[in-house]
């Protein structure tokens, strides 16, 4: 493997005085490389954490495309797009901050960190606007999903011919769409349905497109949406906390060419937060 063994003690004498060197390391480089490897491993755990959510997304999207096609229209593409840009800008400023710390450009470092922080707040602000909008219109998860009249009208504008005013009433419009509860179904009926299921999903989707009916279980989309963006939002919040701490330390003048690991590692974390959003945006907002 390619890890560098820091058996050379050449540097250790030079840096012996560095107060940031911990006792069990031979050199700042060894310490930096250890921290960096640790950070990367941590980022991998973050990716796997979100991986579970992407898995849930993929499974439901693949098996119930009609829910996603229908429900994503309630999301605001431009707000999502704007947030994407905000995060990209913050990524740039964060990368610049790392560079500034490495080169000991203290003013630039402080400025970049402050800009990053501002972007993070802006992102959360926009997110808040989106959440509030959905909250108001009952575009929520599980039993809380209940589209309010105004919003139902809005969907009409979005080329859904006859968006229902109430999720519940939709089922009554078309008896074919009514799902018999559990054991009510006769075995013969079951056999027939299971038999031609291959087309079943597509049929169901077509059905909804032609009849303009809301598909069943739309709330699942919002469940996934809120969990994914919510967990991402929590990561942004955590990032805000850490960057604030960095900002304070940078004002104190802690960082320089000899010691920039905290800025570097926070940068890595922040980029992963951006990276996850890069996937969330098209998957949630840009379905078609």
């Amino acid at each position: 493997m390619s890890d560098s063994q820091s058996s050379s003690h050449v540097d250790s004498a030079a840096h012996a005085a560095n107060p940031n060197l911990q006792h069990h390391f031979d050199s700042m480089e060894q310490q930096y490389e250890s921290g960096k490897l640790g950070m990367w491993l941590f980022l991998v755990t973050e990716i796997l954490l979100f991986g579970g959510l992407f898995c849930a997304y993929a499974v439901y999207r693949h098996n119930h495309p009609e829910i996603f096609t229908y429900a994503h229209q309630f999301l605001d593409k431009s707000l999502g797009g704007f947030n994407t840009i905000v995060l990209i800008v913050s990524s740039l400023t964060m990368a610049m901050a790392v560079r500034a710390a490495q080169l000991g450009q203290r003013r630039l470092l402080t400025t970049c960190l402050a800009l990053t922080l501002a972007c993070a707040f802006l992102f959360l602000g926009v997110k808040f606007v989106e959440y509030e909008h959905k909250w108001k219109h009952g575009l929520l998860w599980g039993k809380n999903y209940e589209v309010q009249g105004e919003m139902a009208g809005a969907t009409e504008a979005l080329m859904i011919p006859a968006a229902p005013s109430q999720s519940g009433s939709a089922a009554d419009v078309d008896p074919n769409a009514t799902i018999l509860p559990r054991a009510a179904r006769a075995p013969e009926g079951l056999a027939a349905e299971v038999g031609d299921h291959g087309d079943g999903v597509a049929d169901a989707a077509d059905d909804h497109a032609t009849h303009g009916l809301e598909p069943k279980n739309v709330h699942l989309f919002f469940g996934i949406y809120f969990v994914m963006t919510g967990l991402h939002g929590i990561h942004v919040l955590a990032g805000i906390g850490v960057i604030t701490w960095l900002l304070i330390r940078s004002l104190r003048g802690d960082f320089g060419p000899d010691y920039f690991a905290p800025v570097d590692f926070t940068g890595l974390y922040w980029h992963v937060v951006d990276l996850i959003w890069i996937f969330l945006f098209p998957l949630l907002y840009l379905i078609d």
Binding site: A58, V59, G142, S167, G168, I179, V194, N217
Partner: peptide, 23 residues
């Protein structure tokens, strides 16, 4: 694997089943 598997067993599911949402 989760996708492959769930796609395989979709045929057994009762479409739109969610008694707590629409009984």
């Amino acid at each position: 694997i989760a996708m492959l598997d769930s796609a395989q067993y979709q045929a057994e599911l009762i479409p739109g089943y969610a008694p707590a949402i629409h009984p």
